[in-house]
Design a protein around this nucleic acid. Structure first.
Length: 263
DNA sequence: GCCCAGGGAATCG
DNA sequence: CGATTCCATGGG
């Protein structure tokens, strides 16, 4: 299925490259193969237009996935008065927070510890190819049930090292109902975070990544090494009220900007 | 053979 | 509580 969507202020490239997803491939400059939930699409941005090709689903799915309904200009306006946030807003204000599958985000960020993005993407692609459902192009991220009976030997192909044990613990807890990902959204952020942190290898940072990238909890603030550097550089005396107006989104712009070397 | 990647957990004070 | 130290593995 092919179709177009008109967007305002959105940047496909900034959104995909902002470190929240590991499930896309650049097939040409500014032209991506994007996997989400059980779907895949080729997408390209030109100005205010998104061109979708060979989508496995209807436009509404991608509209929701890329969070195109949310009023981000309000958030960006709220950053006025904080000089750092004004800079990053001008640099990458086209970032949107994707609506990703919680199980997928949990597994991907468990793989992120002591790791780099290209390698995480490689591990995830091997995981999908070996255990996920085949799509028209590529493979879907495996469900908890598809991974339920995997052991350390099965995961040796991932070359994920010590992280494989984390995956197995997470899968087991999800499959037995100990961690019910479908119920986290009804809990308070603090309660949901506690539940996630019961998984081996999940601390506050990874829990907050799941809450932000899968549950759209903009009030959380995952602090990774890049963001920590910015805090030490510019926010020694504390975060501004503008920052605290939407920590999750501010964090995402700061991460992308710091990694790009503009701040 | 060494260094790097980026987090969690345990153990302090 | 916050700060410090140790730990884990594969790729270049």
């Amino acid at each position: 299925m092919n179709f177009n969507l008109r967007v305002k202020g959105f940047s496909l490239q900034q959104t995909l490259l902002s470190g929240q997803s590991f499930r896309f491939d650049e097939i040409a400059p500014n032209h991506y193969l994007v996997f989400a939930w059980n779907n895949v699409v080729e997408v390209e941005q030109s100005g205010d237009e998104l061109f979708f090709k060979n989508s496995t689903c209807h436009p509404e799915f991608w509209h929701n996935y890329f969070d195109l309904n949310y009023n981000y200009s309000n958030l960006l306006c709220g950053f006025s008065g904080d000089s750092i946030l004004e800079i990053v807003r001008g640099f990458c204000g086209g970032i949107r927070i994707l609506k990703q599958n919680p199980f997928e985000v949990l597994i991907c960020f468990l793989l992120s510890s002591c790791n780099n993005i290209p390698r995480i993407k490689k591990i995830v692609s091997v995981l999908c190819r070996n255990f996920g459902t085949q799509l028209s192009c590529g493979f879907a991220f495996p469900t908890p049930q598809q991974l339920e009976h995997c052991n350390l030997n099965d995961f040796a192909i991932l070359k994920a090292g010590f992280r494989s044990a984390y995956l197995i613990d997470a899968i087991r807890n999800v499959c037995c109902g100990n961690l019910d990902l479908s119920k986290l959204s009804s809990l308070s952020v603090d309660e949901a975070r506690k539940k996630l942190m019961n998984i081996k290898g999940v601390g506050k940072k990874i829990a907050d990544c799941v809450l932000l990238f899968a549950y759209h909890k903009f009030e959380v603030f995952p602090i990774d090494v890049w963001v920590k550097r910015v805090l030490q550089q510019y926010y020694q005396s504390g975060l501004s009220s503008q920052f605290l107006s939407c920590p999750g989104f501010a964090q995402q712009l700061i991460y992308y900007s710091k990694r790009s070397g503009i701040i």
